[in-house]
């Protein structure tokens, strides 16, 4: 009887789809990072063409991993409301480019790093922090991913490296720029940075 019961549960588990259930946040982040590591260690991608293939793959993973909209809103903070709809959209797009250039592309230079997933801490009802450590020959670097749940999915909205929050770091920069410049002025600076001016 007991056996049958478990059998039934097993069958139910197998056939009932859980599309809305994103899984614990740690598993989600872990999944993305493992995918990135797989791409990085993919020995079939070599040379210059392999490099750009890797970049493209990492970018498509980051697309699913990050909530760029949330990232942008949090980075601008109060200033978000000074941007009109179009400016907000453009900002999000440009900011995404900057982050990808800065971090996604940098990743492909890593080869022998190991990532430890330490624990997850609840920050609020919808947000939590996944603590990881990158082990390199030279140092252990603590990297924390802050994730938010939206429509059943957990997505990263901030990365904290050695205590330095990406969102806070850019927020301070943008705030200083916006103290003397208009939203368009800031967008102009970002366009130049991304090479679209």
């Amino acid at each position: 009887m007991k056996k049958q019961f478990f059998g039934l549960i097993l069958v139910l588990l197998l056939i009932v789809p859980f599309p809305a259930y994103a899984g614990p946040p740690l598993d989600t982040v872990k999944g993305h990072i493992n995918k990135v590591l797989d791409v990085l260690s993919d020995s079939s991608l070599k040379g210059e063409s392999g490099k750009s293939a890797k970049k493209a793959k990492i970018r498509s993973i980051s697309e699913k991993m990050f909530d760029y909209n949330e990232l942008s809103r949090r980075t601008l903070g109060q200033n978000w409301n000074k941007f009109n709809n179009e400016q907000q959209k453009e900002f999000t797009e440009l900011y995404k480019c900057i982050l990808e250039d800065a971090y996604a592309d940098k990743l492909i230079t890593y080869t022998d790093e190991k990532v430890l997933f330490n624990k997850e801490t609840i920050l609020s009802e919808k947000t939590c922090e996944i603590q990881t450590t990158i082990i390199t020959k030279k140092a252990d670097i603590p990297i924390h991913y802050r994730v938010i749940q939206k429509e059943g999915e957990w997505r990263v909205y901030d990365i904290v490296i050695e205590g330095v929050s990406l969102v806070n770091n850019y927020r301070t920069q943008f705030r200083e720029i916006l103290a003397s410049k208009s939203p368009d002025g800031l967008l102009d600076i970002l366009r130049k940075k991304v090479g679209r001016a």
């Binding site: 770091n169 920069q173 720029i177 600076i189 970002l190 940075k193």
Partner: peptide, 16 residues
């Protein structure tokens, strides 16, 4: 990575 490197470093220093 920085848009304004001076401020970025200052902020990173303080946060760290």
């Amino acid at each position: 990575a920085a848009v304004d490197p001076y401020i970025s470093i200052r902020d990173a220093y303080v946060q760290n």
